Simulated scan of single mutants.
Amino acid sequence: MRIWGKLFGGAIGFMFGKFIGLVIGLWLGHQVDKYAAASKQLTQRGSSRQAIFFNTTFSVMGHVAKASGQVTATDIKIASLLMDQMRITGQARIDAQQAFRDGKASNFDLRGSLKAFRLIAMGRSDLLQMFMEIQIQTALADGKLEAKEHALLLTIAQELGFGRMQLDALLKRWQAEYQYHQQGGQQSLSIEQAYQVLGIEANVDDQQIKRSYRKLMNEHHPDKLVAKGLPPEMMELAKRKTQDIQAAYDRIKSERGMR
């Protein structure tokens, strides 16, 4: 129990105002103690949120990888590449690998894990979306989406509060990004892929393009996501996402002659 604020405030108050000063000093000290306790609790909660995000991400990845019947070499490779992108080494990598194995187990509680994650995410839609995008990336590791994988992604989306249309929009965007990276980067980004990455149709006006671009950049801003609970190890994924969004926007601007 924190009492130092009360003791200090009470002592200072008594020195300057006797009994009334003591009362005022105790009250002010109590507010300081409350603030300090709340700050510590928020810090602990943030660390807990990052730990749950980290563990749930890799355990659900393992579950998604097994959706088609068995975990393939490609599934394991994409998990390893993801860890490499995040620069996860040492104990953190061991923990991620164990979580991935836990997710492959037949008794893995998918819905329970997702409910716990959604609860600690506290309704942060951008954080939930980042998680969803990582699972989509896992399902599309081989460039195709099987029926069982789609059904599982839909279950994950619904548990996190996303509808079927939102999932389909995310899938369409990620498929465009996958093709973009498979073809070698920005030089091969087609105008059709650019519109898909931004999640818009080719017939929208310039203002809508700018709004979509700003919205996506805000949702995937690495520093903002980490502050909301994204593990620091996953900042590299957010950075790569913003680079793709920027490349798509630049491609469309060039095509349209936008300023």
Results as ranks from 00 to 15, higher is better:
20 I>E: 09
38 A>I: 11
62 G>A: 09
9 G>W: 03
68 S>N: 11
61 M>T: 03
58 F>V: 06
36 A>F: 10
29 G>K: 03
3 I>Y: 02
16 F>I: 14
77 K>F: 03
49 R>L: 15
72 T>M: 08
9 G>T: 05
44 Q>V: 13
57 T>G: 03
39 S>L: 15
85 Q>R: 07
20 I>A: 12
74 T>S: 10
2 R>W: 02
23 V>E: 05
71 V>G: 01
41 Q>G: 02
46 G>Y: 04
22 L>Y: 04
79 A>G: 01
29 G>D: 04
4 W>R: 07
77 K>G: 00
46 G>C: 12
56 T>D: 08
34 K>S: 06
38 A>S: 11
83 M>I: 09
49 R>G: 03
33 D>R: 13
4 W>L: 05
56 T>R: 06
7 L>N: 02
9 G>C: 05
3 I>M: 02
20 I>M: 10
25 G>W: 07
53 F>H: 03
64 V>K: 00
60 V>N: 02
33 D>W: 05
44 Q>F: 12
40 K>I: 15
34 K>I: 15
17 G>Q: 13
42 L>H: 11
44 Q>W: 08
4 W>M: 05
12 I>P: 04
53 F>L: 01
30 H>T: 13
9 G>F: 07
34 K>V: 15
16 F>L: 14
68 S>T: 08
77 K>S: 02
72 T>P: 04
34 K>Q: 13
74 T>V: 10
44 Q>L: 13
17 G>Y: 12
22 L>Q: 10
28 L>A: 13
49 R>K: 15
64 V>P: 00
47 S>M: 14
51 A>P: 03
48 S>W: 08
69 G>Q: 05
5 G>N: 01
57 T>M: 07
34 K>F: 12
78 I>D: 07
76 I>G: 02
24 I>P: 01
25 G>R: 07
24 I>S: 08
24 I>H: 06
85 Q>C: 00
23 V>F: 10
44 Q>Y: 13
77 K>H: 07
22 L>W: 10
22 L>K: 11
52 I>H: 05
63 H>M: 11
76 I>K: 08
45 R>W: 15
75 D>K: 06
67 A>T: 01
50 Q>I: 13
58 F>A: 11
18 K>C: 04
37 A>V: 15
18 K>Y: 12
43 T>P: 00
81 L>D: 13
28 L>P: 06
45 R>P: 02
19 F>V: 12
10 G>M: 09
31 Q>T: 06
47 S>V: 09
39 S>V: 14
14 F>L: 12
70 Q>A: 12
25 G>I: 08
67 A>G: 08
71 V>M: 04
77 K>R: 10
19 F>G: 05
8 F>D: 03
54 F>Q: 07
84 D>P: 03
66 K>F: 05
23 V>L: 14
54 F>M: 10
19 F>A: 09
13 G>A: 05
83 M>F: 05
57 T>H: 05
35 Y>H: 09
70 Q>L: 11
13 G>F: 03
85 Q>P: 00
41 Q>T: 15
5 G>I: 06
59 S>K: 06
7 L>W: 08
62 G>C: 08
